[in-house]
């Protein structure tokens, strides 16, 4: 058979265009299997037919593609494409399927854990705030108690040392009751017979008015001698050193004291007992 003549008879084109009848097609397929030139001729016409058809393309209305894809939307694969023919179909598909499920559950679990954790964070944060507030209150209370304690200790020490002084056998106690018209006043002088230091205990004396001060006088041979000013002090107040005196008295003087007592402002008076 003359293959060249066969190829150029037009049968190739007729076959490719789908115009050959069944008998002609079967004959050509059989010959093509034996003759590579026939296969080449078929391939060549197919290629130029395709190129020509694409060159003669008429773009379809744009909505056709949307309608087509909408019609087929349930027929597309949801899995990743694979280029290896033998393994393509089953293995990666089920693997990806179950794995994506696993990650779905993992993601769900993560979200739940996050929500629970956030809730716990909030709860514990509030608890921590409460505890911190309580601790601060306790610390403040503790500090104020400590301070009070210190004050009491100091006072106790003062009282103790005062007691020591007052109960000392060498201490001369001079009780000074209120004079006529000032009977509800009372003060006591403790006079060290050895050192001659004078201590005053204001048992009952009204609060000195603003810009006034109580002043102690020692009466020495009938004359008043300044024995010191009464300042704010707890318990016994140490005043001046008085070598000799027969009596003590307290007057209310201007602030800072006076050189001589204002006699009509005398409050208490007491004689040193023999």
């Amino acid at each position: 058979m003359d293959i060249r003549a066969y190829i150029e008879s037009g049968i190739i084109e007729s076959y490719v265009l789908g115009m050959a009848d069944a008998q002609e097609a079967a004959e050509l397929e059989q010959l093509a299997a034996q003759h590579p030139e026939i296969r080449e001729a078929i391939a060549s016409f197919e290629a130029s037919l395709e190129a020509s058809a694409i060159a003669q393309a008429t773009p379809p209305p744009p909505d056709v593609k949307a309608k087509l894809f909408s019609e087929l939307k349930n027929e597309f694969s949801a899995t990743v494409p694979s280029f290896t023919e033998s393994t393509a179909k089953v293995v990666p598909l089920t693997a990806t399927g179950s794995r994506s499920n696993f990650f779905k559950y993992l993601a769900a679990a993560s979200v739940i854990l996050l929500v629970v954790s956030s809730g716990m964070n909030f709860y514990f944060y509030n608890r921590l705030n409460d505890a911190t507030d309580k601790l601060l209150a306790l610390q403040t209370e503790h500090n104020s108690i400590l301070a009070d304690n210190k004050t009491y200790q100091t006072r106790l020490l003062d009282i103790y040392s005062n007691m020591q002084l007052m109960s000392d056998p060498q201490m001369i106690k001079v009780s000074m009751p209120g004079i006529k018209g000032k009977e509800n006043n009372l003060a006591t002088v403790f006079w060290d017979s050895k050192t001659k230091d004078v201590y005053l205990l204001a048992n009952k004396l009204a609060q000195a008015p603003e810009n006034k001060q109580y002043q102690l006088w020692a009466i020495v041979n009938g004359k008043p001698v300044d024995a010191g000013l009464l300042n704010d002090c707890n318990g016994l107040c140490k005043l001046k050193n008085i070598p000799a005196a027969q009596a003590f008295a307290i007057t209310l003087e201007k602030k800072g004291g006076s050189p001589t007592p204002t006699l009509d402002q005398m409050f208490v008076l007491g004689k040193v007992s023999g």
Partner: peptide, 23 residues
């Protein structure tokens, strides 16, 4: 393998040529 992207590519490349023959 039923890949939508491949079908979309096929459509984009050949719909015009097939449309002509249909017309």
């Amino acid at each position: 393998q039923r890949q939508e992207a491949a079908f979309s590519y096929l459509y984009d490349n050949y719909a015009g040529a097939l449309h002509s023959i249909i017309l």
